[in-house]
Design a protein around this nucleic acid. Structure first.
Lengths: 240, 240
DNA sequence: TTTCCATCTTTACACCGTAAAGATTAAGAT
DNA sequence: ATCTTAATCTTTACGGTGTAAAGATGGAAA
């Protein structure tokens, strides 16, 4: 784990070092994020979150470190601490953003005027498509290890995602949803839909589906496999 | 990430330090693993793997570091490097062991004389049961990030796991399996079974199933939910 | 017995998270 | 208007990590 060197801004003497460093950074054009010069103040919190998302999708989960994010945003390595308590704080806020993006994508996919039995398919495909478009984010959201669900923003966003899923499943069963209490049958239907689509997504992101794709005619895409799987997995138009 | 201190064996002077450290360690009874004193030589490779499994199940994936494993085995922090090239090497070999354990468990679950339609259920339950009994191992096996599948031992063990799954699915469809080429329908059936059980397992290990269990009568176990899910998910006795 | 070399230990370095203390400046008080 | 305060950001420091390189050790081959 010895790769990049911290930028050499260890020049200036004693006082006014911050200003000197800032000036030096500006001279070199290192303000790589945040348009309007976050030279002392600024909207650092948001800038850090945007930088974090960039780092995540560029370098993967392993590259998402506090110092890397600070570097990307052009601030000192300890700056993030004041906005998010620690790494799990930053990561959790980022995951909350991911859940909100995800919720928006799912809501958009649920809207159209499809003839109803195709609704489930469309939703499932949108689910996988989101993960494919934001693999880092999806991985982050479902790798609980580094997440702190006691943060209200994360808890709420994740809860909203679950509620959306639950009501989608209920709708496909021609039922109303009662948020607090579920029957075992409803719970099983939700678990089934979620496990199926989450499992497929994880296997895809972890590259395990290649084992299957290699045994199909060369050039078969993941989407084809997903379609075929959903065809046998979704409640057929004849069922209740 | 500042927690435990490296044991203080920085006492001895210049030459014979290794011997001195070894003696000191023995004096304190720090040979916590490996019965017959791996004092210089020994079966270190295996001892390290056993130590790694212990660390993994005790401290989780985050605690599984090269130095922690070396500590657990009572050797210097650089010793593992000579047996596994780097961290991903050790982790990959450990994952290979996990896959072999898993394959054995699945083989045992597939053997019994069940009346055939219940076979799939039994296998699925064994799958989840393995993950529940070895959560750290399962997490390791399916978090590709840190794994190196170019290692033959890992590749073979994982391939064997896939082959077992594929043939189980084929059997449930009253088909013979042709290892190299699959029809799209076969591939979809395999993907469906794998996604379902893997997804359920991941959601369970990551604690996301609590969202569902909290909405069921208090005290409902995860096993109950799994049963109910499989009942609607497995090909019913009437289907082809 | 002597040499050789695989095995294990030390030392060193860049990276990481995080705590604590110093510098800077926006904003409110006088 | 200046002064004070507090929020924001930077430095410094420390112990943790992986891993490269060099030194010590001792079994096995010559």
């Amino acid at each position: 784990m010895a790769r990049k060197a911290e930028p050499a801004r260890t020049a200036a003497k004693r006082p006014g070092r911050a200003a000197a460093a800032r000036a030096a950074r500006a001279r070199r054009g290192q303000r790589n994020a945040a348009e309007e010069a976050p030279y002392h103040h600024g909207a650092l919190r948001d800038a850090l979150l945007q930088a974090a998302e960039r780092v995540l999708e560029r370098d993967g989960l392993a590259g998402l470190t506090l110092r890397a994010v600070a570097r990307e945003a052009g601030v000192s390595h300890a700056a993030p601490t004041h906005h998010f308590r620690d790494l799990s704080g930053l990561v959790s806020e980022l995951a909350a953003i991911g859940f909100r993006q995800f919720n928006a994508a799912m809501a958009a996919a649920g809207a159209p005027d499809a003839p109803h039995p195709a609704r489930g398919m469309a939703r499932a495909k949108a689910y996988v498509a989101y993960a494919q478009a934001h693999p880092g984010m999806y991985g982050l959201m479902f790798r609980t290890e580094r997440l702190d669900y006691s943060r209200p923003s994360l808890d709420e966003a994740a809860e909203a995602a679950f509620a959306g899923l639950a009501s989608a499943v209920a709708a496909s069963r021609h039922e109303q949803i009662e948020q607090e209490h579920l029957t075992l049958e409803q719970a099983a239907a939700i678990a089934r839909a979620w496990s199926l689509v989450h499992g497929f997504t994880m296997l895809m992101l972890d590259g395990r589906l290649k084992d299957i794709l290699h045994r199909l005619p060369t050039g078969t895409e993941v989407g084809t496999l997903l379609d075929a799987m959903l065809k046998i997995a979704m409640p057929s138009p004849s069922a209740s």
